[in-house]
Simulated scan of single mutants.
Amino acid sequence: MSKLTHLDDKGEARMVDVGAKSVTEREARAEGVIRMSPNTLSMIIEGEHPKGDVLAVARVAGIMAAKKTHDLIPLCHSLNLSSVKVELTPGDDNQSINVHARCKLSGQTGVEMEALTAVSVAALTLYDMCKAVDRGMIIDGIRLLEKKGGRSGHWSASESPS
């Protein structure tokens, strides 16, 4: 098992020093889903939600969240992201929206937390905007799908035992 990098030898929290790491191209993808009633999904897709285009607002919220991850998670580095993409697609089950995020940069540390934060906040924004019509929504399955770059190279959820 690997040593936890955010703890020093005394077990105290610390921000990891990435100063000696090489600058490499880094990328991370994450996903999640928000489940809702078919009526709520229909309202969103048809553009009939009283709050307007909730998908556009959630997409922008996810992008903004990725850029602010270091403000939300205490030991994350402030990163100069080169790209953040958030996609929101209706699920085949007719009662969910799949949320995917991809973050990229050239830097000394990874962007996994940024991708996970983008997915989380996009899903939370959907919940917030739709809670007046559907309080029973469920946010589920937020996870890292893939990361590329850095010393540890490429990792994919499909390669990891569950």
Rank of each mutant, 00 (worst) to 15 (best):
S37W: 03
K85N: 15
G32K: 06
D17Q: 11
S82C: 03
A61P: 04
K85E: 15
E46T: 12
N39I: 01
M43D: 08
V16H: 07
V33R: 15
E48Q: 15
A58Q: 05
K68Y: 03
V54P: 04
H49G: 00
S78K: 13
S82Q: 10
K85M: 12
D92I: 12
E48M: 12
T24G: 01
A20I: 04
A13R: 10
A13C: 09
V60Q: 07
V60E: 08
T89M: 12
H70W: 12
G19I: 01
S22A: 15
T40E: 08
P38C: 14
S78V: 02
V84M: 00
L41N: 06
P50T: 06
R35K: 14
P74D: 06
S82E: 14
M15C: 02
G47C: 03
A66G: 04
G62R: 10
H49T: 00
S37I: 00
V16G: 08
K85S: 15
V57G: 03
S83K: 14
L72F: 13
D71L: 14
S22Q: 15
M64H: 09
L88P: 00
T24L: 03
M43R: 15
D17F: 11
E31H: 10
M43N: 10
S37Q: 13
S42V: 02
G47T: 02
P38M: 10
V23G: 01
T24D: 04
T89V: 15
N80L: 10
R26N: 03
C76F: 02
M64D: 08
S83V: 01
G52K: 04
D92C: 00
T40H: 07
I73C: 07
S82L: 06
S83F: 09
D53E: 03
K51T: 07
H77M: 04
V86Y: 04
H49A: 02
V16D: 07
E31V: 13
I44L: 10
E12K: 15
K10W: 05
D9M: 05
V23Q: 09
R26T: 05
H77P: 01
G11R: 10
L75Y: 12
S42F: 12
T69I: 05
E87A: 12
I44S: 06
A30M: 13
R26D: 05
L81W: 02
T40D: 08
R26S: 02
A28G: 01
I73W: 06
L41C: 02
T69D: 00
D9P: 10
S78E: 13
V18Y: 01
E12N: 15
K67H: 06
A56C: 04
A58D: 00
A61S: 15
I63T: 01
V18E: 05
V84I: 13
G52F: 05
S83Q: 13
M36P: 11
E46A: 14
G11P: 12
E25S: 14
A28I: 03
A61W: 05
D53W: 00
I44V: 15
A66S: 14
R14E: 11
D92P: 10
D53V: 07
G52R: 03
M36Y: 08
G19K: 05
P50A: 09
A13I: 13
L72G: 03
H49Q: 03
E46P: 04
V57A: 10
V60R: 08
V86C: 09
S82P: 03
L41D: 11
M64F: 10
L75R: 00
S83D: 14
D92W: 02
V16Q: 05
S82F: 02
D92L: 13
N80M: 12
L55H: 00
